[in-house]
Write a protein that binds this DNA or RNA. Structure first.
Lengths: 212, 212
DNA sequence: CTATGATTTAATCACCTGATTAAATTCTTG
DNA sequence: CAAGAATTTAATCAGGTGATTAAATCATAG
């Protein structure tokens, strides 16, 4: 057994970044426990001990990755909040699709974490969700309700449930739909989705004055 | 070390059933790998070797449990299909809630399996879903489309997407909503959900002749 | 009662996991 | 160039996992 320790020459120093990237890729389609630190390290081209060095533990790496992805999504949503992009029904659906397109891992990562996370970063994610997605929808409702554009009797909580369902679920079903009938989430499909959802919500919940 | 082998007296003989029940409970809120065969066996009040005896392996037990839960749901849906319960919008939403209420583990188990199952029973579940939920919705669409009750330009695939989202997503969000604002999925809540979804779909996709 | 097969047990196995270490190498900077 | 800090390595560790076994017990038919 030869003993050759130390770093080989001419290697990239950015093990940390490589590990985050590997985590982002590996944790997406596999269960947490099915991803070993050796697998992560190999994919990142890095020694597995670097996980402890930079993140203290496997869970630390996972949490850091979740923070990064979530941070991107939350930041993106917050900047759009100020721009008023969400203040039309179509704008809401379009903005949401745009945000997710930039971090397509997010819905599934979030769902997995909220559903079966054992405290790894569950509380954090739930808080972030409460303050963004939920909050945005409630603001949209308030906006139109104040203008008298929402039909009488529409329950704001149920309004929110519908909008969350229509925006999130298509992303959960992405792989399923791909398998059972080859649906491709390309731009054309997403445009149809936006138009379809917009129509549904405007016809279903808005009074008929004029749409948009 | 004392050596006391064999079965104690007066024990229930139905280890198989106890194990399925334990699997149904334990696999629901925990990731597959976080549930050990020792934990399953202890919860079932049974020796862990019984898993091999009856199911060949941990994965065999898991698969058997999935089959049981899925079988109940599929059977329930199929019997309702013949009764025509689904042939109104409200009937569709009400029937779906009724079915899920009887097997509330199903949506999450299915989602976990489709999302991150590594072939354990993924293909089976996808086929079953294609032949029931998807098929039911397509039949509902056909039914009303043939009667000219569906608005022009409504894409059947998107129609299906909406109905799947509105029926499934509330169950995925159950725990999240419970945490962030104490929503309880009691009968009153489910009735509001049914009424809300019915209104949304009828107003959004149906022509205005008369609703039900 | 007895023999046979089904069931259940305690104990053990090999293996993989995440974590950790001490040494080797590289980088920085004076 | 030299010294100290930062980074990276191979190797190892303890612990838990699913699987497996041989023996013990139970149920049952004759």
């Amino acid at each position: 057994m030869l003993n050759k320790k130390g770093r080989p020459q001419g290697e990239k120093p950015d093990a940390r970044e490589a590990l985050i990237k590997a985590a982002r890729y590996k944790f997406l389609n596999k269960a947490y426990d099915k991803v070993s630190i050796r697998e992560l390290a190999q994919y990142a081209g890095v020694n597995s001990a670097m996980i402890k060095y930079y993140f203290e533990s496997k869970e630390g790496l996972y949490r850091a990755m979740i923070m990064e992805v979530t941070g991107q999504v939350i930041g993106n949503i917050k900047s759009r909040l100020q721009s008023g992009d969400f203040m039309s029904v179509e704008g809401f659906f379009r903005s949401f699709v745009d945000v997710i397109k930039q971090s397509p891992e997010f819905p599934l990562l979030m769902l997995k974490e909220v559903m079966l996370g054992q405290g790894v970063s569950r509380q954090y994610l739930i808080e972030q969700l409460s303050q963004t997605h939920v909050k945005v929808i409630d603001q949209v409702f308030e906006h139109f309700h104040a203008k008298g554009r929402i039909k009488a009797g529409v329950d704001p909580k149920m309004f929110r449930m519908s909008l969350m369902s229509l925006t999130l679920n298509p992303w959960y079903m992405r792989e399923l739909l791909g398998i059972i009938e080859g649906v491709d989430y390309d731009d054309a499909f997403l445009e149809r989705l936006i138009a379809h959802n917009t129509l549904l919500i405007e016809q279903g919940f808005f009074v008929g004055e004029d749409h948009e």
